[in-house]
Design a protein around this nucleic acid. Structure first.
Length: 374
DNA sequence: GGCGCGCGCGCC
DNA sequence: GGCGCGCGCGCC
């Protein structure tokens, strides 16, 4: 429980806000948490700040106070997200407790269908991967209850998970100045995005290799590997077979229509076509993107003076998350997101067209050019 | 029975 | 990895 609070405070709470917002937040922290300025100034990153808040108020109260401050500062989205996660943690611990009680009465509890397809497949995968050869202490004979599966899913996982590496990004410096990279891995039944906060692991995450990961963190919808995780090559006889359709699904850009049905916080990787640049400020840019199924906004936070993007270009997004802007679903960058503009190639045919247009309809063309330039 | 949606597959 | 086709399922 304490761990979950720590986790949501850091992941949903403090990382949901921008650097600037964090500075303002810190200012109000002194009062709300009764923390001295000098103590506060000693914290150099969000993790240390989260620890300090928890030290001062205890995990549950730290989350409540943070929500309160977010509301006060009008960070309504962050406040809402944190509140939701807090409720989730609370109701989860309630159901876990209830499940344990009923379990004793009714031993033969069938694992009912979990909510959401990915959740189901995750449940299956954790069952598959708790096969005797991977961690012998598991009891495969007994079917796991939903509560037990949940317990496996959230938080620190010590037992090794065997996965096939599908795809990796190159290491890059994220907003918190750490060198990190992202990976897509799969088991026989599900694929997962992995945030690796320790660049030296890059050698281990080689595509097409089967590896075993332990001491990693299970978040709501992704894995987190840190320097204290263990990543090793799987034994040569252990091969994770990933069906082709799953591989394709793992690499495919989700449709906008589908994304609009996903809950806040869902991690998204993909390539999206820019339809318009809605809003451009010093520390944030709002892009309108489209595909066959619809349109949505992509909010990229942070300084983007150097980013040159125009209508028709594509955005490669890694580790963005589904978020809400009022009623509308949008994608939003987080501190660990990767963002790149793929310039649309100026096709020769277009140049040819321009040439023919110029030679035939000079007046029209000059008009057209001035339109596109503005 | 028709239609639409979602998924899988194969080609580029 | 995108795109387009085709199949199958479910709803009306």
């Amino acid at each position: 429980m304490e761990y979950e609070y720590r986790e949501i405070l850091l992941l949903t709470g403090l990382e949901e806000i921008t650097k600037k917002e964090l500075q303002r937040f810190k200012y109000f922290v002194m009062d709300e948490f009764k923390i001295s300025r000098s103590q506060l100034e000693e914290t150099t990153n969000r993790t240390e700040l989260a620890d300090l808040l928890i030290q001062s108020a205890g995990p549950a109260l730290a989350v409540t106070k943070t929500i309160h401050l977010f509301q006060k500062l009008n960070y309504m989205h962050a406040a809402k997200c944190l509140q939701e996660q807090k409720k989730k943690v609370e109701s989860q611990s309630m159901t876990n407790r209830k499940k344990k009680e009923t379990q004793q009465v009714e031993k033969r509890s069938q694992a009912e269908s979990c909510s959401g397809a990915s959740a189901t497949s995750r449940g299956e995968s954790s069952k598959k991967n708790s096969a005797p050869e991977v961690h012998p202490q598991a009891k495969p004979q007994k079917q796991q209850t939903v509560a037990e599966q949940e317990a496996i899913r959230e938080g620190l996982q010590k037992d090794p998970l065997a996965v096939l590496v599908l795809k990796t990004t190159n290491p890059f410096k994220c907003e918190t100045e750490e060198d990190i990279f992202h990976v897509t891995v799969a088991t026989a039944t599900a694929f997962f995005f992995v945030k690796v906060l320790y660049a030296p692991f890059k050698d281990k995450f080689t595509p097409r290799r089967t590896i075993k990961i332990s001491n990693y963190l299970w978040h709501f919808n992704f894995l987190e590997v840190t320097s204290s995780s263990i990543v090793v090559d799987a034994d040569t006889d252990l091969k994770v077979c990933v069906p082709n359709n799953l591989r394709q699904k793992a690499g495919r850009t989700p449709t906008i229509k589908m994304l609009k049905t996903q809950p806040c916080g869902t991690i998204v990787n993909g390539i999206f076509k820019v339809q318009k640049i809605t809003e451009k400020q010093k520390d944030r840019v709002l892009y309108g993107v489209e595909d066959k199924t619809g349109e949505m906004d992509v909010l990229v936070l942070g300084n983007q003076d150097k980013i040159k993007c125009e209508t028709g270009d594509k955005l490669r997004l890694v580790f963005f998350e589904v978020s809400e802007d009022g009623e509308k679903t949008q994608l939003k960058s987080g501190p660990y997101s990767f963002f790149k503009v793929i310039k649309s190639p100026k096709p020769k045919t277009e140049q040819k067209e321009k040439f023919t247009l110029k030679s035939t309809h000079l007046n029209n063309t000059s008009l057209k050019d001035s339109n596109t330039a503005s």
